[in-house]
Design a protein around this nucleic acid. Structure first.
Length: 285
DNA sequence: CCCCAGTCCTGCGGGC
DNA sequence: TGCCCGCAGGACTGGG
């Protein structure tokens, strides 16, 4: 499930389209239920064909091609979306194609197995609205320890649940929330307002370290093998996971306790009860 | 403010 | 061997 490191890897993988001119956009022929593309493909085509891509940006878990018109083509991969410049994993889940008239990359695909993602063209006004509406918080990699604490320290939510709130902080998903809290040695069920100043420092440092590490290894490709970088190669960070999806296996940090799986906000959380103490387990199931 | 359940969607794996 | 069901969860919505 593409989170900040995976989406950042996608962004880096398509940087070569900077400066290229868009020559065509189309929905891929696909038997499956069509993904969300906005506006309608013919309207979208009129607004982008012939324009150059000025920049490739990341907005939380989205990748955006900034065009010379100021519009942005925003890819939101959600669970299984991929932005590719070569060899998709298969043909039947291709959803959208963008062709470039010049430059090193002549074709960009959006591929999505489950189809929960989207491709949207947003005007400068719509982009401004996306940020001002409060739907998307500051990027996890651009937030200082003080800002992190300021945003969360009065909340009564559990820290793991709070980290997933994209309005509070953008980019962290289910996988990295568990990994970050493990490195920080903080119990995922700890309530934000009970977290000390020192612990916020530790959480912040762990967040930056884990996310940057994961970017260095080009993200995590889980057992289902879905995630791929822009060249359709898997990430390597799954080899460095300490707790995620390792329930009942020995904790790699203390080499003593077994990793536990609990459910918070209807999502799996993994942690080591020895390395991350501090909550009665009876509060969870 | 925050929580919870439901929705979208496909593929996979467990159970029978 | 095959079918059904539950599960995976990011973002969003509606009700409490």
């Amino acid at each position: 499930m593409p989170e900040l490191p995976e989406v950042e890897t996608m962004r880096r993988g398509i940087l070569g389209i900077q400066g290229s001119r868009i020559s065509a956009v189309e929905r891929a022929p696909c038997r499956l239920k069509p993904i969300l593309v906005r506006p309608r493909i013919d309207v979208l085509r009129r607004r982008v064909v012939g324009l150059r891509v000025l920049d490739v940006e990341r907005i939380g878990k989205r990748v955006m091609l900034r065009l010379e018109s100021g519009d942005g083509i925003v890819f939101e991969p959600r669970m299984t979306g991929l932005v590719l410049v070569a060899d998709p994993p298969d043909e039947e889940h291709l959803r959208f194609r963008l062709a470039l008239a010049d430059g090193p990359i002549r074709q960009l695909w959006y591929w999505d197995r489950r189809g929960l993602g989207s491709v949207q063209l947003l005007s400068p006004l719509q982009l401004a609205e996306l940020f001002s509406s409060g739907r998307i918080g500051p990027d996890a990699l651009a937030l200082s320890a003080e800002e992190l604490r300021d945003r969360f320290s009065t909340s009564r939510r559990e820290i793991k649940v709070a980290l997933l709130d994209q309005r509070a902080i953008a980019g962290i998903g289910n996988l990295y929330a568990s990994e970050i809290l493990h490195v920080a040695a903080v119990h995922p069920g700890k309530l934000c307002h009970r977290i000390t100043r020192q612990e916020w420092q530790t959480i912040h440092a762990a967040m930056i370290a884990v996310l940057n590490d994961a970017i260095r290894y080009e993200g995590s490709t889980l057992g289902d093998g879905t995630y791929r970088n822009a060249l359709n190669r898997p990430g390597e960070y799954q080899k460095h996971h300490r707790v995620y999806d390792r329930a009942h296996q020995r904790c790699l940090t203390c080499c003593t306790a077994e990793v536990k799986r609990i459910v918070q906000g209807q999502r799996s959380t993994f942690y080591c009860p020895r390395c991350q103490p501090g909550r009665r387990s009876s509060r969870h199931k």
